[in-house]
């Protein structure tokens, strides 16, 4: 599993919130950030797939990231955003509670995922970034994209 997105000396991260935790993904994987919009439910899909949206003429799936990571999903509010990411040529929207900032993190400050104990299954994690007093959980989007198989099975 190559993870080019985190491979240079330092990475730029888009930092967002899920509940009280801060998460980050490489800015290179982020296509755009949208406000919450109408989502069309798609029947016979796992519950973390909220449905599909229209992004300038193309239809793309939206995943509720909190449900995907088995966290308690809350209500959507004004801060709720959809981050459009590109994973292996597929565009996916991810619903997050809020997008806070873009920051630069030296790669040395990233701890590999195995040493962390947390609520989120380690498969979906790339590591944890430390910056000042904050801990930013870095997600492994490629692993998250593996959800395609599960969908088909279900």
């Amino acid at each position: 599993m190559s993870n080019n997105a985190y491979s240079s000396d330092q990475v730029q991260l888009v930092v967002f919130k899920l509940g009280k935790e801060e998460y980050g993904i490489s800015i290179l994987q982020v296509q755009e950030i949208k406000r919450m919009t109408d989502i069309t439910r798609v029947p016979h899909t796992p519950d973390y797939i909220k449905g599909v949206i229209n992004l300038r003429g193309s239809v793309l799936p939206v995943v509720d990231l909190k449900k995907r990571l088995n966290m308690n999903a809350g209500e959507y509010n004004d801060n709720t955003r959809i981050i459009i990411v590109k994973i292996e040529e597929i565009f996916i929207g991810m619903i997050v509670d809020a997008v806070s900032e873009v920051l630069t993190l030296p790669v040395n400050n990233i701890e590999p995922a195995q040493t962390v104990v947390g609520g989120v299954s380690a498969t979906y994690l790339y590591g944890v970034g430390k910056l000042d007093n904050r801990l930013i959980i870095l997600l492994n989007l490629e692993a998250l994209a593996g959800l395609g198989q599960e969908t088909r099975a279900g």
């Binding site: 109408d38 069309t40 798609v42 599909v52 229209n54 959800l147 395609g148």
Partner: peptide, 23 residues
């Protein structure tokens, strides 16, 4: 098309975008 991620859902043949932008 619904794209790769959602491929293989039996009852749905695809999607379309309506005049109001909804899918």
């Amino acid at each position: 098309s619904l794209g790769k991620l959602l491929a293989g859902i039996k009852v749905i043949a695809g999607a379309t975008i309506l005049g109001n932008g909804q899918v």
